[in-house]
């Protein structure tokens, strides 16, 4: 195991398309420690310990209302414990 001394990473990945782009940009804006890795068709965002997706930030990006559950349409995979309400979606590990 190579993760004993470090903070575990959470991640979330989306299809690399125009609908997902404002979501990805909002996540990167709200999570300064996150980094995005692009591979064909896919963008995977990793963050140490914790990551938040905020509805308000996505709405600022697009200028229109956004229902957070819309992320299901372009979501590919994720890792971490999830908590979701109307305003934000978080991923975290407890440790």
């Amino acid at each position: 195991m190579n993760t004993v001394a470090t903070v575990s990473k959470v991640f979330i990945a989306f299809q690399d398309n125009e609908e997902a782009r404002p979501v990805v940009e909002a996540i990167l804006a709200d999570n300064p420690q996150a980094d995005a890795v692009y591979s064909p068709g896919l963008v995977k965002i990793n963050a140490p310990g914790h990551l938040v997706v905020r509805r308000a930030t996505i709405e600022e990006q697009t200028g229109r209302p956004f229902d957070l559950q819309q992320i299901h349409v372009n979501l590919v995979t994720l890792s971490g414990h999830i908590d979701e309400d109307d305003d934000q979606f978080t991923l975290s590990w407890n440790q």
Partner: peptide, 24 residues
């Protein structure tokens, strides 16, 4: 994830789309 990204890289947009759609 990596296999479907590989499908995209190999020009198979049909498979990558069903793959990612399933993975969602």
């Amino acid at each position: 994830v990596p296999f479907m990204s590989g499908a995209a890289h190999n020009g198979d947009m049909s498979t990558v789309t069903f793959g990612f759609s399933a993975q969602s």
